[in-house]
Design a binder for these strands. Structure first.
Lengths: 211, 211
DNA sequence: GGAAATTGACCGACTGGTTGGTCGGTTTTT
DNA sequence: AAAAACCGACCAACCAGTCGGTCAATTTCC
Protein backbone atom coordinates (compact mmCIF):
# COMPACT_ATOMS: atom_id res chain seq x y z
CA UNK A 1 0.00 0.00 0.00
CA UNK A 2 2.62 2.40 -1.01
CA UNK A 3 0.38 5.12 -2.37
CA UNK A 4 0.86 8.11 -0.19
CA UNK A 5 -1.86 10.26 -1.68
CA UNK A 6 -4.33 7.43 -1.48
CA UNK A 7 -3.65 6.75 2.16
CA UNK A 8 -4.00 10.41 2.89
CA UNK A 9 -7.34 10.42 1.14
CA UNK A 10 -8.52 7.41 3.09
CA UNK A 11 -7.65 9.15 6.32
CA UNK A 12 -9.41 12.31 5.24
CA UNK A 13 -12.53 10.39 4.36
CA UNK A 14 -12.54 8.50 7.63
CA UNK A 15 -12.01 11.74 9.50
CA UNK A 16 -14.87 13.35 7.64
CA UNK A 17 -17.22 10.62 8.67
CA UNK A 18 -16.16 10.49 12.29
CA UNK A 19 -15.95 14.23 12.81
CA UNK A 20 -19.34 14.73 11.23
CA UNK A 21 -20.89 12.07 13.39
CA UNK A 22 -19.28 12.93 16.69
CA UNK A 23 -18.09 16.50 16.54
CA UNK A 24 -14.53 17.51 17.15
CA UNK A 25 -14.10 16.66 20.79
CA UNK A 26 -16.06 13.48 20.85
CA UNK A 27 -14.31 12.20 17.78
CA UNK A 28 -11.52 9.98 19.07
CA UNK A 29 -8.41 9.64 16.99
CA UNK A 30 -8.41 5.90 17.48
CA UNK A 31 -11.81 5.74 15.85
CA UNK A 32 -10.59 7.65 12.85
CA UNK A 33 -7.59 5.35 12.71
CA UNK A 34 -9.79 2.28 12.78
CA UNK A 35 -12.18 3.67 10.23
CA UNK A 36 -9.37 4.57 7.88
CA UNK A 37 -7.87 1.09 8.11
CA UNK A 38 -4.43 2.47 8.65
CA UNK A 39 -2.68 2.98 11.95
CA UNK A 40 -2.14 5.69 14.47
CA UNK A 41 1.41 6.14 13.35
CA UNK A 42 0.28 6.58 9.78
CA UNK A 43 -2.33 9.11 10.62
CA UNK A 44 0.22 11.12 12.55
CA UNK A 45 2.65 10.66 9.72
CA UNK A 46 0.23 12.42 7.39
CA UNK A 47 -1.24 14.96 9.78
CA UNK A 48 0.65 16.52 12.65
CA UNK A 49 -2.29 16.83 15.02
CA UNK A 50 -5.97 16.28 15.48
CA UNK A 51 -6.62 19.94 14.93
CA UNK A 52 -4.75 20.05 11.66
CA UNK A 53 -6.51 16.96 10.47
CA UNK A 54 -9.82 18.58 11.20
CA UNK A 55 -8.85 21.71 9.31
CA UNK A 56 -7.69 19.63 6.39
CA UNK A 57 -11.08 17.97 6.23
CA UNK A 58 -12.98 21.25 6.35
CA UNK A 59 -10.71 22.90 3.86
CA UNK A 60 -11.01 20.17 1.35
CA UNK A 61 -14.79 20.11 1.60
CA UNK A 62 -15.12 23.87 1.34
CA UNK A 63 -12.76 23.95 -1.58
CA UNK A 64 -14.79 21.44 -3.49
CA UNK A 65 -18.04 23.23 -2.78
CA UNK A 66 -16.70 26.60 -3.83
CA UNK A 67 -15.44 25.09 -7.04
CA UNK A 68 -18.77 23.57 -7.74
CA UNK A 69 -20.63 26.80 -7.13
CA UNK A 70 -18.25 28.71 -9.35
CA UNK A 71 -18.63 26.19 -12.09
CA UNK A 72 -22.41 26.34 -11.98
CA UNK A 73 -22.41 30.11 -11.96
CA UNK A 74 -20.18 30.29 -14.97
CA UNK A 75 -23.03 28.87 -17.05
CA UNK A 76 -25.11 31.97 -16.56
CA UNK A 77 -24.53 35.63 -17.23
CA UNK A 78 -27.46 37.49 -15.71
CA UNK A 79 -26.29 38.63 -12.27
CA UNK A 80 -29.55 37.92 -10.49
CA UNK A 81 -29.68 34.47 -12.00
CA UNK A 82 -26.11 33.91 -10.92
CA UNK A 83 -26.98 34.76 -7.38
CA UNK A 84 -29.91 32.42 -7.58
CA UNK A 85 -27.71 29.67 -8.85
CA UNK A 86 -25.21 30.23 -6.08
CA UNK A 87 -27.99 29.93 -3.54
CA UNK A 88 -29.43 26.84 -5.13
CA UNK A 89 -26.13 25.12 -5.47
CA UNK A 90 -25.10 25.72 -1.91
CA UNK A 91 -28.48 24.71 -0.57
CA UNK A 92 -28.66 21.66 -2.70
CA UNK A 93 -25.17 20.46 -1.87
CA UNK A 94 -25.64 20.94 1.82
CA UNK A 95 -29.00 19.28 1.90
CA UNK A 96 -27.80 16.32 -0.06
CA UNK A 97 -24.71 15.58 1.95
CA UNK A 98 -25.30 15.55 5.65
CA UNK A 99 -21.63 15.18 6.46
CA UNK A 100 -20.83 18.24 4.48
CA UNK A 101 -23.53 20.27 6.17
CA UNK A 102 -22.67 19.12 9.65
CA UNK A 103 -19.02 19.82 9.23
CA UNK A 104 -19.30 23.14 7.52
CA UNK A 105 -22.21 24.48 9.51
CA UNK A 106 -21.97 22.98 12.92
CA UNK A 107 -19.13 20.85 14.05
CA UNK A 108 -16.50 23.46 13.55
CA UNK A 109 -17.79 25.31 16.50
CA UNK A 110 -17.13 22.40 18.73
CA UNK A 111 -13.44 23.10 18.47
CA UNK A 112 -13.92 26.09 20.62
CA UNK A 113 -12.32 29.38 19.87
CA UNK A 114 -9.55 27.79 17.87
CA UNK A 115 -11.95 27.33 15.02
CA UNK A 116 -13.32 30.80 14.72
CA UNK A 117 -10.69 32.07 12.37
CA UNK A 118 -11.14 29.10 10.12
CA UNK A 119 -14.88 29.37 10.12
CA UNK A 120 -14.87 33.04 9.31
CA UNK A 121 -12.39 32.35 6.56
CA UNK A 122 -14.53 29.67 5.00
CA UNK A 123 -17.84 31.44 5.31
CA UNK A 124 -16.17 34.48 3.86
CA UNK A 125 -15.29 32.65 0.71
CA UNK A 126 -18.91 31.86 0.08
CA UNK A 127 -20.04 35.27 1.15
CA UNK A 128 -17.58 36.86 -1.26
CA UNK A 129 -18.90 34.70 -4.05
CA UNK A 130 -22.42 35.87 -3.40
CA UNK A 131 -21.49 39.46 -2.75
CA UNK A 132 -19.71 39.79 -6.05
CA UNK A 133 -22.85 38.95 -7.95
CA UNK A 134 -25.10 40.91 -5.70
CA UNK A 135 -23.03 43.93 -6.52
CA UNK A 136 -23.53 43.30 -10.17
CA UNK A 137 -27.23 42.90 -9.66
CA UNK A 138 -27.31 46.21 -7.87
CA UNK A 139 -25.38 47.84 -10.64
CA UNK A 140 -27.78 46.42 -13.18
CA UNK A 141 -30.60 47.95 -11.23
CA UNK A 142 -32.34 44.67 -10.52
CA UNK A 143 -31.42 44.73 -6.88
CA UNK A 144 -31.90 47.56 -4.45
CA UNK A 145 -28.64 49.26 -3.46
CA UNK A 146 -27.65 47.99 -0.04
CA UNK A 147 -24.72 46.74 1.96
CA UNK A 148 -24.10 43.59 0.02
CA UNK A 149 -21.49 42.30 2.43
CA UNK A 150 -24.05 42.14 5.19
CA UNK A 151 -26.68 40.72 2.91
CA UNK A 152 -24.41 37.95 1.73
CA UNK A 153 -23.55 37.05 5.30
CA UNK A 154 -27.17 37.11 6.31
CA UNK A 155 -28.08 34.83 3.47
CA UNK A 156 -25.56 32.27 4.56
CA UNK A 157 -26.80 32.53 8.10
CA UNK A 158 -30.37 31.99 7.03
CA UNK A 159 -29.53 29.00 4.91
CA UNK A 160 -27.34 27.58 7.59
CA UNK A 161 -29.97 27.83 10.27
CA UNK A 162 -32.72 26.24 8.25
CA UNK A 163 -30.50 23.37 7.22
CA UNK A 164 -29.18 22.81 10.70
CA UNK A 165 -32.67 22.57 12.07
CA UNK A 166 -33.59 20.16 9.37
CA UNK A 167 -30.52 18.06 10.05
CA UNK A 168 -31.28 17.65 13.69
CA UNK A 169 -35.06 17.55 13.84
CA UNK A 170 -35.95 16.27 10.42
CA UNK A 171 -38.33 19.18 10.05
CA UNK A 172 -39.50 20.34 7.65
CA UNK A 173 -39.83 16.96 6.04
CA UNK A 174 -39.26 18.42 2.64
CA UNK A 175 -36.15 20.51 2.84
CA UNK A 176 -36.52 21.33 -0.83
CA UNK A 177 -39.73 23.13 -0.14
CA UNK A 178 -38.22 25.03 2.76
CA UNK A 179 -35.30 26.08 0.69
CA UNK A 180 -37.53 27.42 -2.02
CA UNK A 181 -39.48 29.47 0.53
CA UNK A 182 -36.16 30.70 1.79
CA UNK A 183 -34.93 31.62 -1.63
CA UNK A 184 -38.02 33.58 -2.44
CA UNK A 185 -37.72 35.49 0.78
CA UNK A 186 -34.04 36.23 0.29
CA UNK A 187 -34.46 37.38 -3.27
CA UNK A 188 -37.45 39.54 -2.49
CA UNK A 189 -35.44 41.03 0.33
CA UNK A 190 -33.05 42.62 -2.11
CA UNK A 191 -35.29 43.17 -5.09
CA UNK A 192 -35.39 46.64 -6.54
CA UNK A 193 -38.71 48.37 -6.09
CA UNK A 194 -39.84 48.44 -9.66
CA UNK A 195 -39.38 44.80 -10.42
CA UNK A 196 -41.99 42.93 -12.32
CA UNK A 197 -43.92 40.30 -10.55
CA UNK A 198 -42.73 37.46 -12.69
CA UNK A 199 -39.14 37.84 -11.73
CA UNK A 200 -39.63 36.40 -8.33
CA UNK A 201 -42.21 33.83 -9.16
CA UNK A 202 -40.15 32.07 -11.71
CA UNK A 203 -37.65 30.85 -9.15
CA UNK A 204 -36.53 27.51 -10.51
CA UNK A 205 -37.29 25.21 -7.62
CA UNK A 206 -34.14 23.38 -6.67
CA UNK A 207 -34.60 20.43 -8.87
CA UNK A 208 -36.75 17.95 -7.06
CA UNK A 209 -35.18 14.86 -8.56
CA UNK A 210 -36.98 12.49 -10.90
CA UNK A 211 -40.70 11.82 -10.59
CA UNK B 1 -22.10 33.31 53.84
CA UNK B 2 -25.02 31.06 54.34
CA UNK B 3 -27.07 32.31 51.42
CA UNK B 4 -27.73 29.43 49.14
CA UNK B 5 -29.41 31.34 46.34
CA UNK B 6 -26.66 33.90 46.33
CA UNK B 7 -23.93 31.31 46.03
CA UNK B 8 -25.78 29.63 43.23
CA UNK B 9 -26.04 32.94 41.46
CA UNK B 10 -22.34 33.61 41.90
CA UNK B 11 -21.52 30.27 40.38
CA UNK B 12 -23.86 30.89 37.47
CA UNK B 13 -22.27 34.24 36.79
CA UNK B 14 -18.77 32.84 36.96
CA UNK B 15 -19.80 30.02 34.65
CA UNK B 16 -21.31 32.47 32.20
CA UNK B 17 -18.08 34.40 31.99
CA UNK B 18 -15.83 31.40 31.68
CA UNK B 19 -18.01 29.46 29.25
CA UNK B 20 -18.41 32.52 27.07
CA UNK B 21 -14.70 33.13 27.01
CA UNK B 22 -13.47 29.59 26.56
CA UNK B 23 -16.30 27.57 25.16
CA UNK B 24 -17.59 24.43 26.79
CA UNK B 25 -14.65 22.12 26.44
CA UNK B 26 -11.92 24.60 27.11
CA UNK B 27 -13.70 25.92 30.15
CA UNK B 28 -12.18 24.10 33.09
CA UNK B 29 -14.33 23.57 36.14
CA UNK B 30 -11.50 24.71 38.37
CA UNK B 31 -11.52 28.05 36.63
CA UNK B 32 -15.20 28.50 37.22
CA UNK B 33 -14.63 27.51 40.82
CA UNK B 34 -11.90 30.08 41.21
CA UNK B 35 -13.87 32.77 39.48
CA UNK B 36 -16.90 32.15 41.61
CA UNK B 37 -14.86 32.35 44.80
CA UNK B 38 -16.42 29.21 46.13
CA UNK B 39 -15.02 25.72 45.96
CA UNK B 40 -15.25 22.67 43.83
CA UNK B 41 -17.37 20.94 46.41
CA UNK B 42 -19.77 23.84 46.45
CA UNK B 43 -20.11 23.99 42.72
CA UNK B 44 -20.88 20.31 42.61
CA UNK B 45 -23.23 20.76 45.51
CA UNK B 46 -25.28 23.18 43.46
CA UNK B 47 -24.92 21.60 40.03
CA UNK B 48 -24.55 17.88 39.43
CA UNK B 49 -22.24 18.14 36.43
CA UNK B 50 -20.47 20.45 34.07
CA UNK B 51 -23.09 19.80 31.44
CA UNK B 52 -25.95 20.68 33.71
CA UNK B 53 -24.19 23.81 34.84
CA UNK B 54 -23.81 24.85 31.24
CA UNK B 55 -27.46 24.23 30.52
CA UNK B 56 -28.43 26.18 33.59
CA UNK B 57 -26.46 29.15 32.34
CA UNK B 58 -27.98 29.03 28.87
CA UNK B 59 -31.47 28.52 30.16
CA UNK B 60 -31.30 31.41 32.47
CA UNK B 61 -29.99 33.74 29.78
CA UNK B 62 -32.52 32.64 27.21
CA UNK B 63 -35.32 32.97 29.71
CA UNK B 64 -34.40 36.53 30.48
CA UNK B 65 -34.10 37.47 26.83
CA UNK B 66 -37.44 35.95 25.89
CA UNK B 67 -39.06 37.81 28.75
CA UNK B 68 -37.57 41.04 27.62
CA UNK B 69 -38.71 40.58 24.05
CA UNK B 70 -42.21 39.70 25.16
CA UNK B 71 -42.35 42.72 27.37
CA UNK B 72 -41.25 45.05 24.59
CA UNK B 73 -43.69 43.57 22.15
CA UNK B 74 -46.56 43.98 24.52
CA UNK B 75 -46.24 47.73 24.09
CA UNK B 76 -47.31 47.56 20.48
CA UNK B 77 -50.34 46.16 18.72
CA UNK B 78 -49.64 46.38 15.00
CA UNK B 79 -48.34 42.94 14.02
CA UNK B 80 -45.68 44.21 11.66
CA UNK B 81 -44.41 46.61 14.26
CA UNK B 82 -44.37 43.81 16.79
CA UNK B 83 -42.22 41.74 14.54
CA UNK B 84 -39.95 44.69 14.07
CA UNK B 85 -39.67 45.18 17.78
CA UNK B 86 -38.87 41.54 18.31
CA UNK B 87 -36.08 41.81 15.76
CA UNK B 88 -34.73 45.00 17.25
CA UNK B 89 -34.81 43.75 20.79
CA UNK B 90 -33.04 40.52 20.00
CA UNK B 91 -30.44 42.26 17.90
CA UNK B 92 -29.86 44.95 20.42
CA UNK B 93 -29.55 42.62 23.37
CA UNK B 94 -27.17 40.33 21.58
CA UNK B 95 -25.02 43.13 20.28
CA UNK B 96 -24.79 44.76 23.66
CA UNK B 97 -23.83 41.73 25.65
CA UNK B 98 -21.06 39.73 24.12
CA UNK B 99 -21.34 36.95 26.67
CA UNK B 100 -24.98 36.53 25.87
CA UNK B 101 -24.32 36.40 22.16
CA UNK B 102 -21.41 34.03 22.40
CA UNK B 103 -23.24 31.64 24.64
CA UNK B 104 -26.54 31.65 22.83
CA UNK B 105 -25.19 31.72 19.30
CA UNK B 106 -21.89 29.96 19.37
CA UNK B 107 -20.62 28.18 22.41
CA UNK B 108 -23.49 25.81 22.67
CA UNK B 109 -22.24 23.98 19.67
CA UNK B 110 -18.98 23.28 21.36
CA UNK B 111 -20.71 20.73 23.52
CA UNK B 112 -20.96 18.49 20.57
CA UNK B 113 -24.10 16.63 19.78
CA UNK B 114 -25.29 16.73 23.36
CA UNK B 115 -26.28 20.31 22.89
CA UNK B 116 -28.34 20.06 19.78
CA UNK B 117 -31.58 19.40 21.54
CA UNK B 118 -31.06 22.31 23.83
CA UNK B 119 -30.10 24.65 21.06
CA UNK B 120 -33.06 23.73 18.93
CA UNK B 121 -35.26 24.15 21.97
CA UNK B 122 -33.95 27.62 22.69
CA UNK B 123 -33.93 28.89 19.15
CA UNK B 124 -37.42 27.52 18.79
CA UNK B 125 -38.67 29.72 21.57
CA UNK B 126 -37.52 32.79 19.75
CA UNK B 127 -38.67 31.49 16.41
CA UNK B 128 -42.11 30.83 17.84
CA UNK B 129 -42.24 34.35 19.19
CA UNK B 130 -41.52 35.74 15.76
CA UNK B 131 -43.68 33.30 13.89
CA UNK B 132 -46.73 34.15 15.93
CA UNK B 133 -46.56 37.77 14.88
CA UNK B 134 -45.61 37.00 11.34
CA UNK B 135 -48.76 34.98 11.10
CA UNK B 136 -50.76 37.93 12.28
CA UNK B 137 -49.02 40.17 9.79
CA UNK B 138 -49.92 37.74 7.04
CA UNK B 139 -53.50 37.64 8.18
CA UNK B 140 -53.62 41.42 8.22
CA UNK B 141 -52.43 41.39 4.65
CA UNK B 142 -49.28 43.36 5.35
CA UNK B 143 -47.05 40.37 4.82
CA UNK B 144 -47.06 38.01 1.91
CA UNK B 145 -48.45 34.58 2.77
CA UNK B 146 -45.55 32.20 3.22
CA UNK B 147 -44.22 29.49 5.46
CA UNK B 148 -43.70 31.60 8.54
CA UNK B 149 -41.95 28.84 10.44
CA UNK B 150 -39.17 28.79 7.90
CA UNK B 151 -39.04 32.54 7.70
CA UNK B 152 -38.73 32.92 11.45
CA UNK B 153 -35.90 30.40 11.51
CA UNK B 154 -34.17 32.06 8.65
CA UNK B 155 -34.36 35.40 10.35
CA UNK B 156 -32.70 34.05 13.44
CA UNK B 157 -30.03 32.47 11.33
CA UNK B 158 -29.36 35.70 9.52
CA UNK B 159 -29.12 37.72 12.70
CA UNK B 160 -26.99 35.10 14.31
CA UNK B 161 -24.50 34.97 11.48
CA UNK B 162 -24.05 38.70 11.23
CA UNK B 163 -23.56 39.06 14.95
CA UNK B 164 -21.16 36.16 15.16
CA UNK B 165 -19.01 37.64 12.45
CA UNK B 166 -19.04 40.94 14.21
CA UNK B 167 -18.11 39.32 17.50
CA UNK B 168 -15.09 37.62 16.09
CA UNK B 169 -13.79 40.02 13.50
CA UNK B 170 -15.09 43.31 14.78
CA UNK B 171 -16.51 43.95 11.34
CA UNK B 172 -18.58 45.84 10.50
CA UNK B 173 -17.42 48.42 12.98
CA UNK B 174 -20.90 49.66 13.46
CA UNK B 175 -23.06 46.70 14.21
CA UNK B 176 -26.04 48.97 14.55
CA UNK B 177 -25.77 49.91 10.93
CA UNK B 178 -25.44 46.32 9.87
CA UNK B 179 -28.44 45.33 11.85
CA UNK B 180 -30.54 47.99 10.26
CA UNK B 181 -29.52 46.83 6.80
CA UNK B 182 -30.44 43.38 7.94
CA UNK B 183 -33.78 44.42 9.25
CA UNK B 184 -34.72 46.20 6.07
CA UNK B 185 -33.81 43.16 4.06
CA UNK B 186 -35.73 40.79 6.29
CA UNK B 187 -38.84 42.93 6.35
CA UNK B 188 -38.80 43.51 2.64
CA UNK B 189 -38.42 39.78 2.19
CA UNK B 190 -41.86 39.18 3.60
CA UNK B 191 -43.64 42.35 2.58
CA UNK B 192 -46.89 41.98 0.71
CA UNK B 193 -46.72 43.13 -2.87
CA UNK B 194 -48.93 46.16 -2.60
CA UNK B 195 -47.18 47.82 0.29
CA UNK B 196 -46.50 51.47 0.25
CA UNK B 197 -42.98 52.61 0.04
CA UNK B 198 -42.94 54.34 3.40
CA UNK B 199 -43.60 51.22 5.36
CA UNK B 200 -40.16 49.87 4.88
CA UNK B 201 -38.27 53.08 4.97
CA UNK B 202 -39.51 54.12 8.34
CA UNK B 203 -37.70 51.31 10.09
CA UNK B 204 -36.79 52.75 13.45
CA UNK B 205 -33.07 52.29 13.53
CA UNK B 206 -32.10 50.35 16.61
CA UNK B 207 -31.51 53.21 18.91
CA UNK B 208 -27.98 54.37 18.44
CA UNK B 209 -27.42 55.56 21.99
CA UNK B 210 -26.85 59.17 22.92
CA UNK B 211 -24.98 61.57 20.63
C1' DG C 1 -32.00 28.04 79.09
C1' DG C 2 -28.69 25.43 77.21
C1' DA C 3 -26.43 21.02 75.96
C1' DA C 4 -26.64 17.77 72.41
C1' DA C 5 -27.91 16.12 68.06
C1' DT C 6 -29.01 17.05 63.31
C1' DT C 7 -28.86 19.33 59.10
C1' DG C 8 -27.27 21.91 55.18
C1' DA C 9 -23.77 24.46 52.98
C1' DC C 10 -19.27 24.43 51.98
C1' DC C 11 -14.34 22.96 51.35
C1' DG C 12 -10.20 21.15 48.61
C1' DA C 13 -6.89 17.29 48.21
C1' DC C 14 -7.04 13.40 45.60
C1' DT C 15 -8.02 9.95 41.80
C1' DG C 16 -8.77 7.26 37.78
C1' DG C 17 -10.34 7.01 33.19
C1' DT C 18 -9.59 8.96 28.92
C1' DT C 19 -7.05 10.02 24.87
C1' DG C 20 -3.75 12.88 22.04
C1' DG C 21 0.51 12.11 20.82
C1' DT C 22 5.26 9.48 20.71
C1' DC C 23 8.72 6.34 19.44
C1' DG C 24 11.28 2.32 18.34
C1' DG C 25 10.82 -0.84 15.10
C1' DT C 26 9.13 -3.12 10.53
C1' DT C 27 7.93 -3.21 5.76
C1' DT C 28 7.87 -1.25 1.23
C1' DT C 29 9.62 1.66 -2.29
C1' DT C 30 13.25 3.86 -4.87
C1' DA D 1 21.03 0.41 1.21
C1' DA D 2 18.81 4.44 2.12
C1' DA D 3 14.58 6.61 2.53
C1' DA D 4 9.80 6.76 2.85
C1' DA D 5 5.72 4.92 4.59
C1' DC D 6 3.61 2.43 7.96
C1' DC D 7 2.66 0.09 12.44
C1' DG D 8 0.74 -0.22 17.32
C1' DA D 9 2.14 -0.62 22.20
C1' DC D 10 2.93 2.67 25.41
C1' DC D 11 2.95 7.12 28.02
C1' DA D 12 1.74 11.12 30.56
C1' DA D 13 -1.11 15.04 31.12
C1' DC D 14 -5.29 16.55 31.99
C1' DC D 15 -9.53 17.30 34.47
C1' DA D 16 -14.40 15.96 35.82
C1' DG D 17 -16.07 14.31 39.56
C1' DT D 18 -15.53 12.20 44.53
C1' DC D 19 -15.29 11.95 49.31
C1' DG D 20 -14.04 12.57 53.93
C1' DG D 21 -14.41 16.14 56.59
C1' DT D 22 -15.34 21.22 58.81
C1' DC D 23 -18.37 24.56 60.56
C1' DA D 24 -22.25 27.26 61.59
C1' DA D 25 -27.07 27.37 62.10
C1' DT D 26 -31.29 24.98 63.55
C1' DT D 27 -33.93 21.75 66.02
C1' DT D 28 -34.61 18.53 69.72
C1' DC D 29 -34.58 17.18 74.26
C1' DC D 30 -33.80 17.51 79.22
Amino acid sequence: MGNKALTRERILEAAEVVFAKKGYHEAIMDEIVQHSETSKGTVYFHFPSKERLFFAVIDSLAERLVRRVEKEMAQESDPLKKVEIALSTVMESLSKRRNLAKLLLVQGYSMGNAFEKKRVEIFSRFAALIKRNLDQAVEAGVARPTDTTIVAQAWLGAISEVIIRWLYTGKPTSIQEALSVLKTMLLQGIAAEGREKGDLERVPSLEGGSP
